[in-house]
Design a protein around this nucleic acid. Structure first.
Lengths: 110, 110
DNA sequence: GGTATAGTCAACCAAATGGTTGACGATCCC
DNA sequence: GGGATCGTCAACCATTTGGTTGACTATACC
């Protein structure tokens, strides 16, 4: 039983994959364009993208011969919450932030 | 140049190590006591602890023949901030949270 | 149809990972 | 000193990881 956290954290453990995610923060990209700035083969990047997709961190949609990669930041949520469990980083923690969100958003559904 | 994020995220990618961290959330522990609930050798746990210490996630202090392990949650900070960069988890993002913190904390230095 | 482009697949490889066991050094206790 | 406990080290092993190259499929273009 491999946890979601396993796949997410190990996906994030590789600098190439983190760099890909930050690239996708700007805009959706085709596989070839993702690969362009890296000094490694297209096949290698394709594997990295498969791993990111496996972790749910990106989604991929094929249109014509081009496969578009889209960031799915929600997949970070579980990992983020897990880490917050340790995070007395700030005097204000998740509870306070949730209270803030509740107040800020009024009645947002979901 | 291996990034801090590399070592932190790959330390977190293993379920045994995450479980160790949650155990240490309760209290500082000796190596033998950390190992007790796991079905694996003491040497294996010792290696995991070395990796956690290498990532800065725990510190270890030897008193007598006992080595105490202490959680160092600040080491999660960098990784947490990195992840927040993606976190349009909610309609409210980092900017809003920073504003919230500023307001909440008044004049907290640093 | 023919050719270029986008991307994956399969086989292979070196290095890293996560575990084992057995020997060992240090410390505590009698 | 002698024996038990704490923990690491070293050697070893199987599996996973991150990369390569070459062949291949599918789409686009002329």
């Amino acid at each position: 039983m491999t946890s979601d956290l396993d796949t997410v954290f190990s996906a994030l453990a590789d600098p190439t994959r983190r760099r890909i995610l930050t690239m996708l923060l700007e805009d959706d990209m085709a596989v070839t364009d993702v690969a362009e700035p890296f000094e490694m083969s297209l096949a290698a990047i394709s594997k990295h993208l498969t791993i990111l997709a496996g972790a749910g961190l990106i989604s991929q949609e094929k249109r014509g011969r081009v496969k578009w990669c889209k960031l799915e930041p929600d997949a970070l949520k579980g990992a983020s919450v897990w880490m917050q469990g340790f995070g007395q980083f700030e005097p204000v923690n998740l509870d306070a932030f949730e209270a803030f969100l509740a107040q800020e958003l009024g009645e947002s559904p979901d």
